[in-house]
Amino acid sequence: MTALSGTSNLTVTSKDVGLRLHDLSVTYRSPGRPLVRAVAGVSLAVAPGQVVGLVGESGCGKSTLGKAAVGLLKPAGGRVTFNGRAVDTLGLRPRPSDQRGLQMVFQDPYASLNPRRRIGEQISDAVVLAGGTRERGRETARELLERVGLAAEFVDRFPHEFSGGQRQRIAIARVLAAEPSCIVADEPIAALDASAQASVANLLLDLARERNVGLLFISHDLSIVRQIADTVAVMYLGTVVESGPTAQVWDDPRHPYSKALISAVPRADGSGELPVDLPGDVPDPAFPPTGCRFHPRCPIATDACEVDEPALVEFLPERRAACSVLAPALTKVG
């Protein structure tokens, strides 16, 4: 993060720079089932050099949001803009060149790399697409492999010769070849061993800092998000229930769901303290509860919560929460 943009300053940076989601919703259709609103009205901004963490349980719509953000899924409502221009959903036509700065890292580096092509070729594709030659691309591939902590000689190897952590580095090198200014990373470390997790997370964080790349880091692992993200957004069943600077949200979560998530993380401190569980399961997104979507599992829900859908309100600068029970108290604190 550069000194200019400051930690987590969503509002200070120019409105159009970076990736912005405006009231985005994404729906899935399947025959014989009601429309599923996997993402139901989310607004989010990722400025260059900023690391935004998006956390939530499986089925909350965070991956769907990530895919829609880079144009892999068509939004049903709302808009996605990148540097002020609408992000087109990918079709048969090549992506407009001004959108090449928006790139994605996927969860499974075993599935995201082509097993039959040398990694150097795969990395150099972006250079060739941008009008460069294969030779130039090969040079870039060598440089990028070194940047992500692998040896430049590896360009002629195949993906199966690498471990999971190394493959994820290769996938990151491939993304870097497109010279991105924003990377959406969907669970980039979930498939890796603990020590590989730490090094890949560090790599992504370094890139964001040194190249001024915006990073949307999607993860179910709160403790890693806490470590690397400047701001965090907590998602539940398609909506953001709380967002704010990471340290503040972690130390003082306001929404009952954020509280539950944070207290469920087991700590390796040898204390033998059992994490607190949250009874119940994430409801089927095809049949979301009425009113506040969290109310059936919420310890402080009132009757009104079954009816009113709470809005995400800013109760302190940059801190937002969506809870109608807490809303009066929240503003008082502000």
Binding site: A194, S195, Q197, A198, S223, R226, A247, A268
Partner: peptide, 17 residues
């Protein structure tokens, strides 16, 4: 192994793989 973990109460110390 412990140093590679994000420490919930350990502030923003970098992860050490």
């Amino acid at each position: 192994l412990l140093d590679a973990l994000p420490h919930p109460d350990g502030g923003n110390a970098a992860l050490v793989p």
